[in-house]
Simulated assay, not measured.
Amino acid sequence: MALLDVKNLSISFGGLRAVDGFEMQIEKGELYGLIGPNGAGKTTVFNLLTGVYKPNEGIIKLDGEDITGKKTIDINKAGIARTFQNIRLFKQLSVLDNVKVGLHNHYKYSTLEGILRLPKYKKVEKAMDEKAMEILKVFDLDGEADVLATNLPYGKQRKLEIARAMATEPKLLLLDEPAAGMNPNETGELMETIQFVREHFGMTILLIEHDMKLVSGICEELTVLNFGQVLAQGKTADVLNNPEVISAYLGDE
């Protein structure tokens, strides 16, 4: 059984079919790429998978559970986490506190316990601090735990965003153009980070990306979208050599 199983996913906006009959199966532990020209519908697919949009048709199953049309918070609890093309950190919070935000699905105390700083609040906060530091250490960010997120270099902000997503303990990690705005050195470090996350956490990853060097270097399989429809699907090398893909997308590079 595929970890992510998407069948006949479709959505229209004002009569425009933004995604039409989209299908995808991703196996557990796979590093999968979703590519296509600007406006092809890639981010719309991510928004459907994460509950930002509700599909007009189709089924989304995560690890056998039907999550179609559920709220974003419920889909996150079910096991999907994402990052964004434009980094969305709490920039005036510390690196540590950004990761702690991702832990709140698993560590809880009541509002009253928080206001009064009761023993349970202190116990939970201590546990969250320790867990957040463990995660930061994995990403080699523990030395900057007290630094404001806005003061991190761009590449480390991207790494922190991935660390925060991993704090939610997802089954599937969606990365939306993580290399956007990066220089070649930062892109190389990002590639290593993504591969490390996959191996260290046993993570299944779905990646939207325009950087073909990154895509060809780490993705095992690809789906190519064009005008909201699947143009090609399969092993990365086969898809990137597909004449239709070259004509529709890679020929523009």
Rank of each mutant, 00 (worst) to 15 (best):
L4A: 06
D5C: 07
D5M: 03
I11V: 13
F13E: 05
L16W: 11
R17N: 15
D20R: 01
F22R: 01
E23Y: 03
E23G: 08
M24A: 04
M24R: 04
Q25F: 06
E30T: 05
Y32T: 07
P37G: 05
G41R: 01
K42A: 05
T50F: 01
N56F: 11
E57Q: 12
I60E: 04
I60K: 02
G64W: 00
D66I: 09
T72H: 13
I87N: 04
L89I: 03
F90G: 00
F90A: 05
N98F: 09
N98E: 12
K100S: 14
K100T: 13
L103W: 07
H104V: 15
H104D: 15
Y107A: 06
T111V: 11
T111Q: 09
E113H: 04
E113W: 02
R117Q: 14
E125V: 15
E125N: 14
E125K: 13
K126E: 14
M128G: 12
D129P: 07
D129W: 15
A132C: 15
A132G: 15
M133R: 14
L136T: 12
F139C: 08
D140F: 10
D140L: 13
D142H: 13
D142Y: 11
G143C: 08
A145M: 10
A145T: 11
D146L: 14
D146N: 15
A149M: 03
Y154F: 02
R158P: 11
M166R: 02
E169P: 01
E169Y: 03
P170H: 01
L172S: 12
L172Q: 11
L174A: 09
E177R: 09
P178I: 03
P178K: 05
G181H: 05
N185V: 01
G188K: 00
Q195I: 08
V197Q: 05
R198C: 13
E199L: 06
M203W: 10
I205S: 12
K213E: 09
V215C: 02
V215A: 02
G217I: 00
E220K: 13
E221P: 07
T223R: 03
V224F: 06
L225G: 07
L225D: 08
N226D: 13
N226A: 12
Q229F: 08
A232E: 03
G234S: 02
G234L: 03
V239N: 00
V239I: 04
L240M: 07
L240D: 02
N242L: 02
E244Y: 00
E244I: 01
